[in-house]
Write a protein that binds this DNA or RNA. Structure first.
Length: 639
RNA sequence: GCUGGCGUAGCUCAAUCGGUAGAGCAGCUGAUUUGUAAUCAGCUUGUUGGGGGUUCAAUUCCUCUCGCCAGCUCCA
């Protein structure tokens, strides 16, 4: 028997090593740099620690911070580091869970003391000490029973509870110095690796996310192998703050909310309303072009309608209490669909009428818990860009493809190009025939396929009344937002006994699809603000150009130009206030207006304007017609 | 709804140990007529989120309440 083993690397090259070498030793054979960057490895596709010994031929791929799963390991280990520090400062602290998250990590702990931001600094200091100590992180395996005994003796009730939920057998734990934590691993090899980290915030979190359970204190943190990356991350957080639509909304005078009148309700100021109107007009025009008809329906409907639709059964917590009108209960609509169905039922439909594509910018009201309200992104009253498609089984596939294509086109036009689909399929306890589910899911799958979208499938994640596709769009700074939703409904056609007369002269149940492309106008505009950081493309900018005079003599010229622009359908604003030109330009710049047109003596005499484009420091003098041509091309290009 | 933090002028923020609220911007008035990111001067602005309490005295301490923010849960 040889005491050498063969290690196959991802590039299919083979390294030979002594039997029993650790993964760390082997990384050294590949390269010093890689050895330094290595966090863990996958041996025959199983994640292992660097300290794991290898005693047989295998494949090996090294996990660094930047490789898949690397961040999770790094951050997970960082959460252990933090937990250790917390334990040193507060020996009585009970630890719950401490995973890596999308960006960073947290640990939920249970202590009597309420933590403050100053405490975070203290914890950071102790963490730095532990980094200095460079403790080796070692894995140990033991039986579940022994682990229960150990953690019980430490008073770690949450760990014990977790252990009791694990299957019998061996469990693993990791030890670094005096600290030990139940964990599957893998982990980094020693605590010295955490050269740059920061604890970010404290928040409450329920044990196991259940509001009936005890509220724990959660500490969020972030860590990177390279201090430069930490800085980059903190800058990113700063950027997020700068883009906050609530802040930009105030600065650009777009909207407000009024807590004294009611939270979660949006007041659109003139400029915000302009922006909204432009988007809505475009939306309507495109819907007509794409074969939709547009509806308007009421804001309230009798409770009997909501009983028929089933909403009073499964959507009650989100609906407002009824108001009495002539002894009948009326309820503010949380959805538009029952109203569209009422219109459907005003006449008998032949298969020849289908598909019907009925859209509505329908304002709905939903009760949201006060704590979740957030600017325009999470509100209690909002306008869905809703539509319902009623069609025959034969039409379904084409219809879904069309909706998806339309949606993707819309997002592209609005400046969002990175889009991902999420397909949610039949859950337990669903309604509707199995064959209908299959047809529907198949059509959703095919549509995603033909659109060439990245897709994630959430098996069993659909609503009880039908499968759906959600689209998530990525914004300018890489955040994903769930926007479009395309959703089958097998429930309402049944409950309202909808039908059409088929070729065979018999009644048939139509397929019904709900879809919202932008989602809600409020939320969409909020995201649009953050995506563009308030620098909207010319075609949707509420103010496209600010006209600035150099001295009083040019006021008539400016006013004439302004009304000429309005006549031509542009959105100009004249700033003829008695202020210095520099002052007015500064203000126009902070208002993020696409063009600033300065008119002084020279321009007024020659019929030109000095145009300064947003983001550019230099201005260009051109004829007014040249300026219009420039705007036209920017508008046409949706720049 | 829950946990924590925070509520001072339209906005951003200050006020030592409890001593009776102030600065910039904005706004108004006037002067200035300006060449690409802030012209100058003067003036105005407050139930210190609200109620109650402790105190000679509360923005400050206590208490209740409302709201916001960060999360949890939920979600377009």
């Amino acid at each position: 028997m040889s005491d050498k083993i063969k290690i196959t690397l991802p590039d299919q090259s083979i390294k030979e090593a002594d039997k029993g070498s650790t993964v760390y030793d082997i990384t050294g054979l590949i390269g010093k740099g890689l050895q330094k960057a290595a966090l863990a490895a996958r041996v025959d596709d199983v994640p292992v620690d660097l300290s794991a010994p290898i005693d047989k031929d295998c494949s090996l791929s090294i996990i660094t911070f930047d490789s898949e799963g690397g961040r999770d390991i790094f951050w997970h280990s960082a959460s252990h580091l933090m937990a250790q520090a917390i334990r040193r400062i507060y020996p009585g602290a009970k630890l719950a869970i401490g995973p890596a998250i999308e960006s960073g990590f947290y640990y939920d702990i249970d202590i009597d003391k309420t933590l403050t931001p100053e405490d975070l600094l203290e914890i950071e200091k102790v963490m730095a000490q532990i980094v200095e100590e460079n403790l080796p992180v070692t894995r140990e395996e033991l039986s579940r029973a022994d682990a229960v005994k150990l953690f019980s003796s430490m008073g770690e009730i949450y760990k014990v509870e977790m252990l009791n939920d694990l299957p019998e057998g061996t469990v693993s734990m990791y030890r670094q110095g005096e600290f030990v934590d139940l964990c599957r691993g893998p982990h980094v090899m020693n605590t010295g690796i955490f050269k740059s980290f920061k604890l970010l915030s404290i928040a409450g979190a329920y044990w196991r996310g259940d509001e009936k359970n005890r509220m724990l204190q959660r500490i969020y943190g972030i860590a990177f192998p390279d201090p430069k990356e930490l800085k980059k991350h903190l800058d990113f957080m700063e950027e997020v703050k700068k883009r906050d639509h609530r802040r930009i909304g105030r600065e650009l005078d777009l909207f407000s909310t009024h807590e004294d009148v009611g939270g979660g309700l949006i007041y659109w100021h003139p400029k915000g309303a302009r922006l909204r109107t432009i988007i809505e007009e475009w939306w309507r025009k495109e819907h007509f072009k794409n074969g939709y008809e547009i509806l308007y329906t009421p804001h309230i409907g009798r409770s009997t309608l909501w009983e028929t639709s089933g909403h009073l059964g499964f959507y009650k917590e989100n609906m407002y209490s009824p108001m009495k009108i002539d002894d009948n209960d009326y309820i503010l609509k949380p959805m538009n669909c029952p109203f569209h169905i009422k219109i459907y039922q005003t006449s008998l439909h032949s298969y020849r009428d289908l598909p019907l594509r009925w859209a509505e910018l329908g304002t709905v009201y939903r009760y949201e818990k006060s704590g979740v309200l957030h600017g325009m992104l999470r509100v209690r009253g909002f306008t869905q860009d809703d539509a319902h498609i009623f069609c025959t089984p034969e039409q379904i596939e084409g219809e879904i493809k069309e909706v998806l294509r339309f949606s993707l086109w819309m997002w592209k036009t609005l400046g969002f190009t990175d889009i991902k689909a999420y397909l949610a399929t039949k859950p337990e306890g669903s309604v509707g025939e199995q064959s209908r589910w299959e047809t529907a899911q198949e059509s959703l799958r095919k549509a995603i396929e033909s659109a060439n979208l990245k897709v994630e499938i959430d098996e069993g994640g659909g609503a009880f009344y039908g499968p759906k596709i959600d689209l998530k769009v990525r914004d300018a700074i890489g955040r994903e937002w769930q926007m479009t939703t395309i959703q089958f409904d097998f429930n309402e056609p049944e409950r309202f006994d909808m039908y059409y007369i088929g070729e065979d002269g018999q009644k048939h149940r139509p397929y019904m699809v709900h879809r919202a492309l932008l989602g809600s106008i409020e939320r969409f505009v909020g995201i649009l603000i953050e995506h563009y950081a308030g620098r909207f493309p010319v075609w949707i900018s509420p103010v496209q150009a600010i006209l600035v005079n150099v001295s009083e003599d040019q006021v008539p010229f400016i006013n004439a130009m302004k009304s000429n622009m309005i006549d031509r359908g542009y959105r100009p604003q004249a700033d003829t206030r008695n202020e210095s030109m520099g002052y007015k330009i500064r203000e126009a710049v902070t208002q993020k207006v696409p063009y600033i047109c300065v008119v002084g003596k020279n321009e007024a005499e020659n019929g030109t304007v000095s145009v300064r484009k947003r983001g550019e420091k230099d201005s260009v003098t051109m004829s007014i017609d040249e300026f219009y041509a420039m705007m036209d091309s920017d508008i046409a290009e949706k720049r």
